[in-house]
Design a protein around this nucleic acid. Structure first.
Lengths: 233, 233
DNA sequence: GTCCCTTGAACTTTCGAAACTTGGCCCGAT
DNA sequence: ATCGGGCCAAGTTTCGAAAGTTCAAGGGAC
C-alpha cells in the first residue's frame, strides 16, 4: 500500500472514517454523502472525496460512478467468500511467518499474547460485545503472529482481509458465548505452535480458528437484518 | 473492487495512465507530476489526482505525502516477493477454478487457448519482445483459466498480481529465448489439466510456470540497472 | 573551506463554486 | 387507468486558483 505517514487533511478524514466504520458509528449499506461528510469532519468535499477512494481500495466502502459511495454492505455470501480467502491466505502467511520469524518476532508474539490474556473479555454494561480493550489486544496478537512474514505483499493482503472481517465481528449481535468454544485456549495453542516453529500445526490451528469463528457468525445471525442489508437492488 | 463501468473524466485518465505504464510509455521510478499529466491527458490536475490514487491502490504507482507520485519502481527483491505471492495465490485460484469451473468456463478456456496458439510470438522488427498480439492472447488465456473461481476476492487478487507481473515482463530486456523453454507446451499442458479437472496437476503446472518465468527474468537481468531504473530525472 | 541559515521556486494539497448527471415526479396522451 | 416523455431537485464531478510544504541553491559566519 505504501501510503506514507505524512499528515494531510485527507489522511485525517481517512482515519476518522475508518474508525467510524470499524467502530460501528456508520452502518453497513449506509450512503455516504459528501456534504454530510464534509461537515462532519470539518473539511471540504474534495478532501472527503479522496479519503473515500482510499477506503474503496481497502474494500471498506464501495463506489458506483455518479451514484456515490456507501459503506460496504454485509451478507452471508460475502462472509463466506471472505472466510475462504482468509482461511487460505492468512494461514499461508502464518506458515511463512513461523518459518521465517526471528527472535524479535517471538518476543513480540509472547508480549502480545500476554496482553491479550490479561484483557477482560466481557464488559459488565454490554455483555454481548467484547470489550474494546480485548478487541484491540486480539487484533494486536494476530498481527504479531503474522508479522514474521517477510513478504510485504502477502502480509498486507492478510491484514486487509482481517480488517474486513472485523466489520463482521462488530456487527454480529452476540458472538462467542458458545459453551463449546475456548477462545483463550485456541490462542494459547496458536502461540505455542508458533514458538516451537511448528509451521504446519500453526497453519492448521489458524484455519480452524478462522473457520470456526465464521461459522459461529453465520449461525448466530441466520437471517439477520444486520447481515442481510445487502439488498440495494 | 466494484468499480462500476460509469464514464467519468477520472476513469478516462485512469485507463490511459494504466495503459501507458503497462505499455512502457512511462518508466518505472519516473515521477508523475500533476501539471504534466493534466496537460498530457487534457484534464485538470484534480482529475488526474484521483486517477493516481486508484492506481496506487492497484500497486502500479506509489505515493508519498507531499512528495508526489511515482511509477512503481522495479527491483529484484520486489520481483521475488511478487513471484512468491503469485505462486501461492494464483495457483490456489487456479485450483479452485478447475474444481468449480463449469462448461462455459471450459469453453472459454479452449477458445482463449486457440487464439493464443495461433498468435505469432516473435515479431520481425523487434525480435526481443513478444508481439502485442501474443501478449494480449497470453493474458486472456490465463484470465480465462482463472475465471472459473467463484470467489471474487481471491480472483481479483490473483488478477491484480498478474497485472503487476506484466510490468516486469515488459521491462525485461529480452526474455524467453531460452532453448530449454517450451512455453506453448506448458500452456497446452495447463489447458489439458484444466479440462480433465485435474486440479492438483494444474496447480503444480502453474507453480512451475510462474516460478520458471520469474527465474528467467532474474537471470536475464542480473544487475539492477535494467530492473531498477532509479532515473531521478 | 565547510557548515548552517536564509531564500526561492516548484510542486502538492486544499478549497468552494460551477457544470453536469442521475433518479424521481408531474403532466399529458393513449 | 396506464404508459411515455419531459421537467425538477439532489448530488456528484470537475475545475482553477490560493495556500502550504518540500527540496535545492546561494550567501554569510565561523
Amino acid at each position: 500500500m505504501t501510503k506514507s505517514g505524512g499528515s494531510t487533511r485527507t489522511t485525517l478524514v481517512y482515519q476518522a472514517l475508518r474508525d467510524d466504520i470499524l467502530g460501528g458509528r456508520l452502518i453497513p449499506g449506509e450512503r455516504l454523502k459528501f456534504p454530510e461528510l464534509a461537515e462532519r469532519y470539518g473539511v471540504s468535499v474534495g478532501a472527503a472525496r479522496e479519503a473515500l477512494t482510499k477506503l474503496t481500495a481497502e474494500g471498506l466502502v464501495t463506489a458506483k460512478a455518479h451514484r456515490g459511495y456507501t459503506v460496504r454492505s454485509l451478507s452471508h455470501r460475502d462472509l463466506a467468500e471472505l472466510t475462504q480467502a482468509r482461511v487460505e491466505i492468512e494461514s499461508l502467511v502464518l506458515w511463512l511467518s513461523v518459518v521465517e520469524g526471528d527472535m524479535r518476532w517471538e518476543a513480540d508474539a509472547v508480549a502480545a499474547h500476554h496482553v491479550l490474556e490479561r484483557a477482560r473479555f466481557r464488559d459488565t454494561d454490554e455483555p454481548n460485545h467484547p470489550t474494546d480493550e480485548w478487541s484491540m489486544a486480539h487484533v494486536a496478537f494476530h498481527h504479531a503472529l503474522l508479522a514474521g512474514c517477510r513478504n510485504g505483499r502477502l502480509l498486507s493482503m492478510a491484514l486487509a482481509l482481517r480488517q474486513e472481517a472485523e466489520l463482521y465481528l462488530h456487527w454480529s449481535v452476540s458472538l462467542g458465548d458458545e459453551p463449546h468454544r475456548d477462545i483463550a485456549g485456541e490462542h494459547l495453542a496458536l502461540l505455542e505452535a508458533a514458538l516451537s516453529h511448528d509451521a504446519d500445526r500453526a497453519k492448521d490451528l489458524l484455519r480452524d480458528h478462522i473457520a470456526h469463528t465464521a461459522q459461529l457468525l453465520i449461525s448466530c445471525a441466520p437471517d439477520e437484518p444486520n447481515l442481510a442489508v445487502t439488498d440495494g437492488e
